[in-house]
Design a protein around this nucleic acid. Sequence first.
DNA 1: TACCTCTTTCCTGTTT
DNA 2: AAAACAGGAAAGAGGT
Length: 253
Amino acid sequence: MLDSVTHSTFLPNTSFCDPLMSWTDLFSNEEYYPTFEHQTACDSYWTSVHPEYWTKRHVWEWLQFCCDQYKLDANCISFCHFNISGLQLCSMTQEEFIEAAGICGEYLYFILQNIRSQGYSFFNDAEETKTTIKDYADSSCLKTSGIKSQDCHSRTSLQSSHLWEFVRDLLLSPEENCGILEWEDREQGIFRVVKSEALAKMWGQRKKNDRMTYEKLSRALRYYYKTGILERVDRRLVYKFGKNAHGWQEDKL
DNA sequence: TACCTCTTTCCTGTTT
DNA sequence: AAAACAGGAAAGAGGT
């Protein structure tokens, strides 16, 4: 299964590998940006490319998919270990996966090997795939409950499905942003919604809801004023992160 | 099952 | 006039 990989394992340079690094950190760190050359938000999704040819972004998309689909706890994943290309990912041994993601690493390794051997037909039947994963878990004496809270390295969850986190992560990911959102005042956390309907469409895609509109999305955003996640800015399409929002500050990334 | 949070949906009225 | 804002109300989804 691994024969096709001819490159030796080369994990990222651990000299700048912060064990507390989150996914948001990873993609907002200027040191990492140059590695995304030629990539745009319009590049193909990971499922349309063979794992050996995945870009770093594809690897990220795959990780996010695994966390969402199999309810893996992203807190267990040391993201800096996955700031790598598909070729590098395919070169990782099971032990290295475990080192990078604890018990989740074992699942990720299993899923990756299945994609490599079976292609994306592995995902054709979601229920069947889940059963396969479950069988694997059972045979490995792994329990779902055991995936949580062990070997946790990161402080940000990839599973975050809250709207404000989605907005925050979009602001921090220029590759995905496509000019939909932009900072008005980075230090104060003030941002502008540039393409309101595009934002709604993207949020709708995330929630698998093709009826999402900016009007409905903005209603949800207004609820955040109550909880201090957002603060009111008296300008159209302009919002500000409140005291209860976290993870957006430049100096705290 | 009950309860909770976070939306989603719909609405009326207001502001830009 | 159109788009966006402001919130109330109720329903839905997912988690515990």
